[in-house]
Nucleic acid binder design. Structure first.
Length: 316
RNA sequence: GCACAGGUGGGUGAGUGGUUAAAGCCAACAGACUGUAAAUCUGUCCCUCCUAGCGAGGUACGGAGGUUCGAAUCCUCCCCUGUGCA
């Protein structure tokens, strides 16, 4: 068994304590943190994304946080490329990479790769969006019946992507899928999953969302709107959307807070349905900041390291 | 006290005599997800039973009666809530 360098992945729903645990492991093992979060990628989005604070970021190197301008359109493919670049850099430094994932698709793109498909094409999409869902689905049925069978007619974004792929490559998307993905290689991947009890999680989500409003989410949102306008994608994400509605006078403060809390709760649930399918996850039913979880995670990492260094082919 | 308005399934809210276990929305629960993914979408959602179905039965529209072949819908009384007048 070749001793590949270890790659720790921490996954779980929002507010499950991923950041806290990642920091702990990074300090303990000399790790570097790679964020896997579709909104924290953008600069200026601090409070609403619950990014680690400046001090926290000082405790260990952080990557893919704050590294894109919000006017840019980052996709899962770009994220995966960037992530892999960063991972190989960390490896070359001999440090322990710790991926902290909340965005299921990005995590999958990073670890397992995407199928060899084309990037999105805005012009084509503009034209397609004008058609109604039923027509679009019929178009897809002609281009790729299998894809059409798997994608619901109402799921317009996915129908459009499938049509886009077929038209751009002149092949069926499902045929391209058969060529497989391009998984990340060269690492021994260990997935640690945080899955605290739902009611406890929801309580934590509620108080954290409230705190975001109390500590300047509205001001942050206002600044972002002034700087970039209302059209940028991350402004429609959890918390920012509600703060923007408040600013526009469409909601009262209390309504905005309640709506943000609700949105976060719904999101956490969706995250869990995604992560439950993730392969080879070592689950623990607690928050990442609990002592027993830290010990549990530390123990796992330590044991795997011991195995690696004891191997005759191990890299120190 | 009088006058209006109103009390519907976990919430909101349609429905004003019959294809109504009761629209829609929300929540909840389960699921999908291959370059917008903090997005988008799907299913279930009163109870029980089975041959698991556009199946059978039982409950249900504040409460109690009544009219009717048939009521969430009409009538009577009672109980609550809101608003206005006293």
């Amino acid at each position: 068994m070749a001793a590949e360098p270890l790659l720790i992945v921490i996954l779980g729903p929002t507010a499950s304590g991923k950041t806290n645990l990642s920091l702990h492991l990074a300090k303990r093992f000399g790790g570097e943190i790679v964020s896997c979060d579709s909104v924290a990628l953008y600069s200026g989005f601090e409070i609403g994304t619950a990014k680690p604070s400046i001090e926290e970021r000082g405790q260990a190197p952080h990557h893919l946080l704050d590294c894109f301008d919000p006017t840019e359109h980052v996709t899962a493919g770009e994220y995966a490329r960037e992530g892999r670049r960063v991972l190989s850099e960390i490896e070359s430094r001999g440090k322990l990479p710790i991926v902290v994932g909340g965005t299921g698709l990005y995590l999958r793109a990073l670890l397992e790769g995407l199928f060899p498909g084309p990037a999105r094409s805005e012009e084509l999409r503009e034209r397609l969006r004008e058609r109604n869902p039923g027509r679009l689905h019929r178009v897809l049925r002609k281009l790729d019946a299998n894809a059409a069978a798997n994608i619901h007619e109402n799921d317009t974004p996915k129908v459009i992507r499938a049509i886009e792929v077929c038209l751009a490559t002149r092949q069926k998307m499902t045929d391209l899928w058969k060529r497989g993905r391009d998984p990340l290689t060269g690492f021994r991947i260990v997935r640690l999953g945080l899955n605290p009890e739902r009611t406890l999680l929801y309580t934590r989500i509620n108080s954290r969302a409230l705190k975001m409003f109390e500590t300047g989410l509205i001001e942050e949102t206002r600044t972002l709107i002034e700087k970039y306008g209302t059209g940028i994608w991350p402004l429609s994400s959890l918390g920012y959307k509600q703060a923007a509605q408040l600013i526009r006078g469409e909601m009262t403060l209390n309504e905005a807070i309640a709506a943000a809390q609700q949105a976060h709760r719904n999101y956490a649930k969706r995250q869990m349905t995604w992560f439950r399918r993730e392969p080879d996850v070592k689950w623990i039913h607690s928050f990442g900041d609990e002592l027993k979880v830290r010990d549990w995670a530390e123990d796992i990492v330590q044991r795997l390291r011991a195995v690696m260094t004891s191997s005759p082919f191990g890299i120190s």
